[in-house]
Amino acid sequence: MAELMYREALNQALAEEMERDANVFLIGEEVGRYQGAFKVSQGLLDKFGSARIIDAPISELGFTGLGVGAAMVGLRPVVEMMTWNFAILAMDQIVNNAAKLRHMSGGQLRCPIVFRGPGGAGGRLSSQHSQALEANYAHFPGLKVIAPATPADAKGLLKSAIRDENPVIMIEGERLYALKGEVPEGEHIVPIGKADVKREGKDVSIITWSRMYYFVEEAAKQLEAEGISVEILDLRTLRPLDEEAILATVRKTNRAVVVEEGWPLAGIGAQVVDIIQSKAFDDLDAPVVRVTGLDVNMSYATNLENAIQPDAPRIIAAVKKVLYREGA
């Protein structure tokens, strides 16, 4: 297995899929001559030419609409959002068109398109550039939403997304691009809709996704030293949720903590908790606890920024709460 950075894994997935299928093209800001704002598309312009790696003007709504239109007649666009914060300008085309075309046409049309780019806190960027917006997109029927944590999952899920017949929202971790991990060589596909047990354990399940996975892992290591065995379920796909995997881990450990970077109200964690309470109530030994970003806008100051995001100490406290070991 090769060790790759998250951005390199994404780059490989794009290159391989573009090689395999000439209907695939990439459009977005700075994806061509600049080589990508986060270097995900490095080298692709030279390889595939200017009709397949397209430098778009700063017109998020416009180029997203262009992508959706191209998908309606058989191309397979990948639309890069420089960050998901900017994609708020493109929401109309994603939500009102891409997600509804199959429905409005009574099954005559399909819209195989990937919208991808970084989400979550960027690091000293204040409120407009630091938002975990996955819950917004997971809300809409007609979309699929993926948010990989590791380079291997990033590659495998992007390949699945490009081959999918539906619009797929891919929220990458802005702070994960330089992170390294092992990626299987050759054809590596991760199916959409399948969560992954990243760490086996028996005392408590922590359900999470994307960058929060690393804080959870850190917490799990510390808890292990205290004799608490944590199972980590990385959802990877946020719509459709892998209910089976969520229920399986809860039935195994009988205790659950859900960790997400975004805000608490109407967060994805709320839905996860609902699945658990409605389908595995009798398996629970304690109420499920959520750890979320604080219900405030992101600040620039380091101490405020850190305090807003979930971290290992908060996750550890939540685990102790579901184990009734508070203050232990």
Binding site: G69, M72, V73, N96
Partner: peptide, 24 residues
Amino acid sequence: FYGGYGIVGAQIGLAAGMAFASRY
């Protein structure tokens, strides 16, 4: 006929994408 759209002007972007596909 690729549809009637209820959000004012939204089809303008789609049309460019369809034309893009023809050119592509």
